[in-house]
Each structure stands twice: as structure tokens, then as C-alpha cells.
Design a binder for these strands. Structure first.
Lengths: 150, 150
DNA sequence: TGCTGGTGCTTGCAATTGCAAACTCGGCGG
DNA sequence: CCGCCGAGTTTGCAATTGCAAGCACCAGCA
């Protein structure tokens, strides 16, 4: 998912966004409808906010606009823009190569790090070279990260 | 977007996936429906493939299952899967709320988990109930997503 | 035995989605 | 003037979505 190139109008103005993208591409509503494989009246309604298209239609419209479907999903409120600080949690949760327990371990550690850093932040100037040796690692469930690091 | 990595149950078996996640979480259909805020008959139909839920319903179901909506979107074919390993690693690296040491610790743990899972996958008996562990899937990354802890 | 509570499924319905046919408008050429 | 074309919009309809009421089944208990 990429949102980096988009400073978007507020979510909720999907139709405006689609029209804007279409006008930037300098194609007519009918042309986009044809390219997207949707009916032009329907696209018109979507652009004017009269209808709420399904994700599949969004996919098709995105294809017609040569933009990522995710951009439209974001506009439609189906997914959220990624926040840097929720990336890790979301990524861990989505990582199907991990077992549930492993995910939980990672999440727990991550969150305790964050908690620790919040406490540190209130007591400590921003560090610039904390690369090593400043943090004891919390033990969790007998999973000792040090042992793993070996 | 990469899909090559994931040997999930085929997209299209969204309902199976939801049921599976639900059963892993050991909750009844009604409980999940309540937690997700959808009607239980509808959820039943979705699980059996009789209905095709919108992205918003998927969102709600994901919330009820404590999994990411993206996982369900992938199953539903709304988005394509991402490389989980680059997600987590990239997210950890990008997370400015962590110290460098913390990042390294998380990365190390994550990598050892994955190594462990790869080794386990090749030589592993059926899991005990304790783990929500991976099914013995032939493919290295062929993971049947397990329920989340909660 | 009957009752209760929990499970998942069936059915009918209202609302919504996406379409096709038709419409309106503006520009252009004969 | 007319007709044609392309633009976007209106309208009615079939199909689909999601729900509520109800059903069927099962296990446990007095």
C-alpha cells in the first residue's frame, strides 16, 4: 500500500477524488467508464456521491485510472492510511508465517518497548546514539531474546 | 505487490478462512457475529460461501476475529498479498518510536521465529493445542493463518 | 420425559448496487 | 434550420446484500 504520493481530500469524498483523477488524466467520464468496465451512468453517480461502489468496482475504476486500488480504498474508508507507528503492529498481525503465539510475543515486546520509550521520553533528552546498550530487554514468557540472539 | 510468497488457501474460500479463524479462536458463530456486529445468519451464509460480504462487513468480521482486515481482503481477492517478511522488517526499521537497539532486538526475534518456523515446517509433528501453530504445510511459506490470541 | 440454552441454518424482506435505455445539453457541420 | 456526436444525467429494474424472525438440532439437567 502506498499513500506517499497522495495528499488526499478527506476520506468521504471518493467521488470527488475519482473525478479529480479523471480530469487530471484528461479523459471523459465515458472513457473512464469504458476503461474501467463500469457503466457510465453508474460512474457518474459514484462521482457525485449518489452511489457507493463496492471494492470490486473501485478496483476497476482504479485500473481505468491507472492508479492503485489502495488509493481508492483509502478514499472509500476501507483501509486506513498507514501510520508509521501502527505499521509494526499491523505487519506483525498480518504476518501469516508466524504462529499466533509468536505474534503475541512480538507484539508484547514491541509494546513494552514503546511504553518504556514513553517513560524514557519524559525523563530524558532525545538521544542520538542509542544504538546499543541502553535497554535491557524485557523477558517474556520465558522467551529470552538474548538466548535467541545467541 | 507480490503474491508468490503466499500459499494460502485459494482466494475464493473466504468463508472457509473465516470459519477456520473462528474455530481457532474457539468461538461460536453467534459469538463472532456479535463481536463483529453482523447478523449470525448472515455470517453463517458468508462462511458457507452463500453470500459475498462487502469490504465493510469484512472489516467488522476481522475486528471480531482480532485479525487484520487486510487478511480478509486478501482472501476476498480485494487486494493482493504483501510480503509479510518485508512488512514486519520494514515496519520495524521505519518505526521511529523505537531505539536502534530495540529495533534490532525485535528484528532478531522476528527472524529467529521465522527460522524456527521454517525448521519446524520441515520436521514437525502435528502441533499441540498450546500453539496456535502452523499447520504442517509443505510449502515453507504456506501458512494456514491461525487465530490471534486476543 | 420435558425444558432450557446453545449451536448453526432457512426464509422473506427492505435497502442498496450496478446496469441499460433513455434523456438533456452543447458544439459542429451541412 | 437540421442532424450528428460526445458530454454527463435520469430513471426503472434485476440482482445482490444484510437483516430479523423463525426453525432445527443437540446436550445437559430436573
Amino acid at each position: 500500500m502506498q499513500t506517499g504520493d497522495m495528499e488526499l481530500p478527506k476520506v468521504g469524498s471518493l467521488g470527488e477524488y475519482i473525478r479529480q483523477q479523471r480530469q487530471q488524466a484528461k479523459i471523459s467520464l465515458r472513457q473512464l467508464a469504458a476503461q474501467a468496465g463500469v457503466s457510465n451512468p453508474y460512474l457518474s453517480q459514484v462521482e457525485r456521491g449518489l452511489r457507493k461502489p463496492s471494492a470490486e468496482i473501485l478496483n476497476q475504476i482504479a485500473k481505468g485510472l491507472h492508479i492503485s486500488a489502495q488509493a481508492l480504498y483509502v478514499q472509500a474508508g476501507l483501509i486506513e492510511d498507514r501510520e508509521p507507528d501502527s505499521d509494526v503492529l499491523a505487519a506483525i498481525r498480518a504476518d501469516v508465517t508466524l504462529t499466533g503465539r509468536q505474534r503475541q510475543v512480538l507484539i508484547d515486546i514491541y509494546e513494552s518497548f514503546r511504553k518504556e520509550n514513553r517513560a524514557d521520553d519524559s525523563a530524558r533528552p532525545p538521544q542520538s546514539a542509542e544504538t546499543f546498550g541502553d535497554d535491557p530487554v524485557p523477558s517474556r514468557n520465558g522467551v529470552t531474546p538474548e538466548t535467541k540472539e545467541g
